[in-house]
Design a protein around this nucleic acid. Structure first.
Lengths: 198, 198
DNA sequence: GTCTATACAACGATAGAC
DNA sequence: GTCTATCGTTGTATAGAC
């Protein structure tokens, strides 16, 4: 692996483990075994290297999701397959975690891949949901809720220090989803009556 | 407001905005208008002050949730009321956001209030769900999924730079939930058949 | 209790030799 | 391309006077 590559991979690991604010150029150099001078030769600075790292992590996430979405079976099978993918739950989501980083959110270049990843993922899931439930109307909101369960699952699992919580969140979501797919109408009526109530 | 109080409140704001790693004692002093010496007189150091701040934020979150849970109407009404509470979505969850902070997760004293808050919230919600659906079996997983939607909603909203995404996630979740409450059996059967499939 | 002074490492980057 | 030296700033305190 060449120097540039090692820097990107080390930066990815550190961004995942400690976030952007918590990661220093020095730490990246130490982990990659690349010297100060080399790093600044290949990248203009911390944020430049971080961008390369974030871009790659985003690409990886998309590729994994795409593989699950393109798998065999019904739309619901493929949604389920995506949710059941193995994840390093206690490390958190390498992309979602960045939303908590003030310096990432403040820099449009760093934030963009994060934003695009979730837009893409939600849209893709909404298509599959529309197919699974024959209900175009609620697909977008339902897809958003599902992606949120995944992201929130990381938060709860890290808080609890236990992978199980993430699993449980997904189980709960898939349970709700099964009812929805069996009868989207029921959810819709129930929801509307709930909205009217207050 | 006395000195100690101002320090805690400033620390709370900064922890919320920039996280623990991103917040320096100096920044807390600047925001609170309290001098270096005073701060170290009232608190042993950064983590000690942060603990006081986190404890208070956790208590506040609980109090708000409790107020919604103790409101009028059916169990489902009270769950809905909790989900419809006003939130500073783009700032993220003052407690959930801390799970992304490596130095908070690494320190048991700082992590504890975060863990306890989510355990408490999930349990409370599970009780209400059991009441609303007459289904004790899935209440825990469903409650976990719901709390995850809330937390993940913050993540997605911050990524998108838009409050709407959080609202949409909640709408999606409440829609799914309405179907579940109307027919818990349907969700359960559907879910089990989904689990069997792969 | 609060202030100022001091300390010493780490941060993020630049300079210039090789 | 990589190395070492250097730089000015901030982080996280401690010391001691008032």
């Amino acid at each position: 692996m060449d120097t540039r590559e090692r820097l990107i991979e080390s930066a990815r690991e550190l961004l995942w483990e400690r976030g952007y604010v918590g990661t220093s150029p020095k730490a990246i150099q130490a982990r990659s075994g690349v010297g100060q001078g080399s790093m600044y030769h290949h990248f203009a600075g911390k944020s430049d290297l971080a961008l390369a790292a974030i871009d790659r992590s985003a690409e990886e996430l998309r590729a994994r999701a795409d593989a699950a979405f393109a798998g065999p079976g019904t739309a619901m099978d493929r949604i389920t397959a995506y949710f059941r993918l193995e994840r390093e739950v206690l490390k958190g989501c390498p992309i979602g975690g960045l939303t908590q980083d003030p310096d990432v959110m403040a820099d449009p270049r760093l934030r963009r891949p994060v934003e695009e990843t979730f837009t893409w993922l939600t849209d893709r899931l909404a298509e599959l949901l529309a197919e699974a439930s024959n209900d175009r109307v609620n697909a977008r909101a339902t897809a958003t809720a599902l992606v949120a369960v995944l992201q929130g699952g990381y938060v709860l699992a890290r808080a609890a220090g236990s992978v199980d919580v993430h699993t449980r969140a997904i189980d709960g979501a898939l349970g709700l989803l099964a009812g929805y797919v069996a009868s989207p109408q029921l959810c819709r009526e129930g929801h509307l009556s709930g909205i009217r109530r207050p």
